[in-house]
């Protein structure tokens, strides 16, 4: 800490630029710009949060403060069901995609083969292709797969929470791999040699040395997967079966009829959840 503060002091406090008094015009303009951008980003969110507490039943005007909408929300079985579905899918797809993605990242980072650049490129494709294309391809795949199952076994399968979860795993893996690979790149392989030299086999080396050191990356990847799953709309819309709708889809369905403060309330809760997760991840990563 002492070192860090002395470093900041050592930095010159005078910056070049057009100067008036002690504040340069350039810095003043940049500061104002930053403020405006923050307002642009956060005012809509603030409005949403504010109107989740309004007494107005259309949730678009301020007519007084109330917690009513939150109370109503918790007794709305349909919305709560969709919220639980969403949490279930997000948790399940996060766990699966984090485990699979971490192992894939390790495989990609530690093996050398001729086709690796091409395989690398393929891995990032799900990140860049339009989500609608991904959704359609998954839809087509499941339809095809279900037909085969029906033909072979006679059993009829339908889209369900499982298909949505599988779809979410499919698009999350690439993101997890990207994040975990960054930490693996910074990981000093000689530490694994040192552990082996000191008597640790591969399994112990992974859990005692590699895993703790790449954990921040794994947590980062998991959080990304979780938030991606939580607010996914297109793939969820295409892949969820009848009666198993997820929150973003449910919210959209309701907004088409009318915006109610209930929707604002549940959106606010989702916002809180995402912010808490991001905050936690930053705390965890800063501790290292």
């Amino acid at each position: 800490m002492i070192e860090a503060s002395s470093k900041t002091q050592a930095r010159p406090t005078v910056r070049p630029g057009f100067r008036l008094g002690t504040i340069s015009w350039g810095n003043w303009a940049l500061g104002t710009h930053a403020l405006l951008v923050y307002l642009f980003l956060y005012v809509p969110i603030a409005v949403l949060v504010l109107f989740s507490f309004t007494q107005d039943q259309f949730g678009t005007r301020w007519t007084g403060f109330t917690f009513d909408w939150y109370a109503r929300l918790f007794s709305n079985d349909r919305l709560m069901g969709a919220a639980l579905n969403t949490l279930y899918v997000a948790l399940a797809s996060t766990v699966a995609s984090t485990v699979l993605g971490t192992l894939l990242a390790m495989a990609m980072e530690r093996t050398r083969f001729r086709a690796r650049p091409a395989v690398d490129g393929l891995l990032y494709l799900p990140i860049v292709i339009p989500e609608i294309v991904m959704a359609l391809s998954l839809l087509a795949f499941f339809a095809f797969f279900f037909d085969i199952i029906e033909f072979v076994t006679g059993a009829t399968l339908r889209r369900s929470l499982t298909t949505v979860t599988l779809a979410h795993i499919a698009f999350s893996i690439s993101f997890v791999v990207v994040v975990v690979r960054t930490s693996l790149k910074n990981f000093d392989m000689r530490l694994e040699e040192a552990a082996a030299d000191l008597g640790a086999n591969g399994w112990k080396t992974f859990w005692r040395i590699t895993f703790p050191l790449i954990l921040p990356g794994i947590i980062g990847g998991a959080l990304l997967a979780f938030t991606l799953s939580l607010d996914d709309f297109i793939i969820s819309l295409f892949l969820s079966g009848p009666g198993t709708s997820l929150l973003p889809v449910e919210v959209y369905g309701r907004v088409k009829r009318a915006i109610t403060p209930e929707i604002n309330a549940i959106s606010t809760l989702m916002l809180m959840l995402s912010m808490t997760l991001v905050f936690l991840s930053q705390v965890l990563q800063r501790r290292r």
Partner: peptide
């Protein structure tokens, strides 16, 4: 390596950054 009766001192030291000095030596 983990079954050989030798130990290595590495050029870069390769100390485990997430462990204390004691934990490193005890490993």
């Amino acid at each position: 390596p983990y079954q050989r009766p030798v130990n290595t001192v590495f050029q870069s030291y390769a100390l485990f950054p997430h462990m204390t000095v004691e934990q490193n030596v005890a490993f």
